[in-house]
Design a binder for these strands. Structure first.
Length: 328
DNA sequence: CGCCAGGTAACCC
DNA sequence: GGGTTACATGGC
């Protein structure tokens, strides 16, 4: 599979309009996130791909000098039209919470001892979710009841076989498939070829749901967690990930066996605890912002030993080699 | 081997 | 309703 070359097409300056501090590095790069090949980060620069309809866009992002702007170099092919500029700007602004008010959370956190170190180390970090609802649902699906190494393997299989490979600004990255692009793929194929196991039969349900429900419709729903759980294969965890990440509800967070133990240790001083106990505790300490609080605690846990560390600048070439499959 | 992973649906009473 | 159990797969 040869990468498609995207050419430099546009430049954006995105203002940080939301109240509160903005931490460029820890907003775009999350120490706890596993490697997908959809993005790459060095100390000062980030790259990411986006699908906007069928268009494939690559962006290179850097922090503005005043910490209140993000500079975006846009790479695309010939289909990039003026209307895409606004949609991309909105998508980036939402994905990284540039217009969100972080102050209510930081004020609550100032009074919570367990939050002292995370708040200090990650000050100004916001939720990041470059994925749309469909894409984050697939990520959450691949996290269900398995190890990160297998999640990484399944992600690689899916993106290699059904996604795209693009090259821009000196880097090679994968890009997502759209619901329409996997509409014809059978559950059997997902299982046998992409090694999805029992998850294989739920992926077609995801594609069908998001072909019929566009992101705009979802904003109108009043109980998203409930709505999302109507999709076969989406339970409380996946629905909460979708609501907290793609819908950016700061009050919501998905509890799984992994963050359950982290939060139990940090908040309750025990090795493990019931999900309800954790949820209740965090909701009481951070009314309306429990999800943001959980984000800070979990990312701080991984800050010293990131799952996918920042790349040294000179590692990009090696990275490109690894991402290109050597097999036909 | 058996157990467990960054869960969920289907089944039981 | 609330408490089991099967579900695929790979790593240890």
């Amino acid at each position: 599979m040869k990468p498609r070359h995207l050419t430099h097409t546009d430049t954006l300056q995105l203002p940080i309009t939301g109240n509160g501090p903005f931490n460029f590095r820890h907003t775009l790069w999350k120490p706890s996130h596993y490697a997908t090949g959809l993005e790459a980060h060095t100390e000062t620069r980030s790259w990411r791909t986006f699908r906007i309809d069928s268009l494939i866009i690559g962006v290179a992002l850097t922090n503005g000098r005043d910490d209140r702007t993000i500079s975006v170099e846009v790479f695309a092919d010939g289909d990039y039209a003026p209307e895409h500029r606004d949609r991309l700007a909105r998508r980036l602004t939402t994905s990284y919470g540039l217009d969100e008010d972080l102050a209510p959370f930081t004020e609550l956190a100032a009074d919570v001892p367990a939050m002292r170190d995370p708040l200090h180390a990650l000050f100004g970090m916001r939720q990041s979710c470059p994925e749309d609802h469909f894409e984050i649902a697939v990520i959450a699906l691949l996290l269900q009841n398995t190890t990160i190494s297998r999640t990484t393997q399944m992600t690689r299989n899916l993106l290699t076989r059904h996604g795209r490979l693009v090259h821009f600004d000196g880097i090679t990255l994968r890009a997502w498939f759209t619901p329409a692009e996997i509409a014809a793929v059978t559950a059997e194929e997902f299982k046998e070829r992409d090694r999805l196991g029992y998850r294989a039969k739920t992926l077609p349900h995801f594609a069908a749901f998001f072909r019929d429900h566009h992101p705009e419709d979802l904003a109108a729903a009043d109980n998203l967690v409930e709505l999302f759980q109507q999709i076969k294969g989406v339970g409380p965890y996946t629905a909460a990930v979708m609501a907290s990440h793609a819908s950016r509800d700061p009050a919501v967070f998905g509890v799984d066996v992994w963050n359950r133990k982290i939060l139990a240790r940090r908040l309750l001083d025990t090795e493990d605890a019931a999900p309800e106990a954790i949820h209740e505790h965090l909701t009481r300490l951070f009314p309306g912002h429990a999800g943001t609080a959980a984000l800070y605690l979990v990312e701080h846990e991984y800050l010293r030993t990131p799952v996918a560390p920042l790349l040294p600048l000179d590692a990009i070439k090696t990275w490109n080699q690894e991402l290109r499959p050597s097999t036909s």
